[in-house]
Each structure stands twice: as structure tokens, then as C-alpha cells.
């Protein structure tokens, strides 16, 4: 597929399960590749090997089923395994970097290769996967044997925290901004009196200020406008730049159709 796109010069975009991404109202030209059929999760020794389209939550639940510890932190992260590697996803003190051993990837030429975790430059909510032009197809997590009831207790606690603090009743892309050094994005937004403020059908969640929700048939333009409003207000009030954690893809509605 990648070789085909390269050969024909057709734009090519990878979309995970769409959990940490905003697609503009004009859509995406060319080929959009979804890895939602790459779902297998299996065990080899103390390793969990998960295909990139599987949800990281499912890899975490599989590890629990197998009494393997190390992936508990990810039990509430809504994205795919591929997306989790792409942004070194983390929550509640854990991150992918802590347990990833290696990844099977396709490079920009269409060749498949195995890359060690240390060669992916996994840092806070980032990696070199995009820079290298890799598409993750499988991840190997090195875990340890644990006690099922202890793993379950941790996961139950994290699930409770997530469900009680996050606005899961509305569509959203999760946490919109990275944590700025020395601050918490949600606290800055809350202290800027932005909760409940919105544009069109999108607004800053009243439940968790770090989330922007599609409350009433928002457009992508509404949603992105709210992101920009938050960034400008926090910059004005606290002189802090909020960097987006979510990717924005595609083109605005009304942009000339490039299809031939």
C-alpha cells in the first residue's frame, strides 16, 4: 500500500482508531489507511505482543488475564497500540516507554523492520515514529509475572478515577494539550474560567478542563476554534504556551477538491 502510494504520488494518511485526532470538515484527500483489522493480542513468555490496531486497553486487559504486570497504567487510555507508541501514551504515572521492548514497523519505503524501543526516542507524549515515517504494525511489551488480584485492583482503581473525572458521556479526543513544564494544562484552563465556554457545538468540559467535548453536533472548525481560544486565553492570563497533544488532519471545508 505504501509502495503503491509512493509510486502513484497519491497522498497517504494513517488513521488509528481516531481517538487522539481531529479531522477537519473538508476531509482528507487520497488514501486514508485504517489499521482497525490489526487486532490480535498474544502472549510469548512474559511478553505481550499486540497488533497496532488493537486498543491499548485490550492489551492491558489481556495482560491482566495472563497475570502479567506492567501495562496497568494503560487500562483507561482510549487509543490503539499504534497510537500509544506514536505518542508514548501514558497515564497515572506510567507510560509506554516503561514496558515497550520493540516494535515491528513499516518504513517509508514499504519495508518491514523491527525497531528496539530505545531507537524510537520515546519521550513525553512523543516519539520519532512520525519523523522516521514509520507505521507501527505490532508492539512487544516486556512484562513481569504478577498477582492477578493485585493487577486487577490497580486497574479497577484507575478505571474508577478515569470514569469519575473524565467527560466520557460526550464525544471528545481526550486530553487536548500536553502538560506544560511546571504546570497542569487542566488547572491553567480551569483558572482561566474557560470551563463551559464554547463555540458552536464544542465547549471546554465542565467536568475536566483538559477536555474539549462535542456537546451538540459541533463541526471540526468549532472544535479547533475552541482549542485556539483556550491557547490564546491561557497565554494571555498566565503567559504559558499550551501545546496540542492531538493531531489535526485534513483540510477545511470548501478547499478546492484536488481529485482528478
Amino acid at each position: 500500500m505504501i509502495r503503491f502510494a509512493n509510486k502513484t504520488n497519491i497522498p497517504f494518511t494513517l488513521l488509528g482508531n481516531g481517538s487522539n485526532v481531529i479531522v477537519r470538515d473538508g476531509g482528507i484527500r487520497g488514501i486514508v489507511l485504517s489499521l482497525k483489522r490489526f487486532l490480535n493480542v498474544r502472549r510469548e513468555g512474559n511478553k505481550v505482543i499486540a497488533e497496532s490496531g488493537a486498543r491499548i486497553i485490550d492489551a492491558s486487559r489481556f495482560a491482566l488475564q495472563e497475570s502479567l504486570t506492567g501495562l496497568e497504567f494503560s487500562c483507561g487510555i482510549p487509543g490503539t497500540v499504534g497510537g500509544a507508541l506514536y505518542m508514548n501514551a501514558g497515564a497515572y504515572g506510567g507510560e509506554v516507554k516503561d514496558c515497550l521492548e520493540s516494535a515491528l514497523v513499516v518504513d517509508s519505503k514499504g519495508d518491514i523492520l523491527r525497531v528496539a524501543a530505545e531507537d524510537l526516542n520515546l519521550e513525553y507524549r512523543t516519539s520519532n515514529i512520525a519523523k522516521k515515517g514509520y507505521i507501527v504494525i505490532e508492539a512487544t511489551f516486556a512484562l513481569q509475572i504478577g498477582k492477578h488480584e493485585e493487577i486487577k485492583a490497580i486497574m479497577d482503581d484507575l478505571t474508577y478515577k478515569r470514569e469519575s473525572k473524565q467527560p466520557l458521556e460526550y464525544p471528545s479526543c481526550g486530553s487536548v494539550f500536553k502538560r506544560p513544564p511546571g504546570y497542569f494544562a487542566g488547572k491553567l484552563i480551569q483558572d482561566s474560567d474557560l470551563q463551559g465556554k464554547g463555540i458552536g457545538g464544542a465547549e471546554v468540559s465542565t467536568k475536566h478542563a483538559g477536555f474539549i467535548v462535542n456537546k451538540n453536533q459541533a463541526t471540526a472548525t468549532d472544535y479547533i476554534s475552541v482549542i485556539e481560544m483556550v491557547q490564546k486565553t491561557v497565554k494571555y492570563k498566565f503567559n504559558v504556551n499550551l501545546e496540542r497533544e492531538v493531531r489535526i488532519l485534513g483540510e477545511d471545508e470548501g478547499v478546492t477538491d484536488k481529485k482528478s
Binding site: T13, L15, N17, G18, S19, N20, V21, I22, V23, R24, D25, G26, G27, I28, R29, G30, I31, V32, P78, P171, S172, C173, G174, N214, A218, T219, A220, Y223, G250, E253, K259
Partner: peptide, 10 residues
């Protein structure tokens, strides 16, 4: 997409 936003892919 989780946001329920986004136009068409070719």
C-alpha cells in the same frame, strides 16, 4: 473518530 468530527476520505 472519537470526536465524531471529520469530512470524507477519498
Amino acid at each position: 473518530t472519537y470526536t465524531k468530527l471529520g469530512g470524507k476520505a477519498d
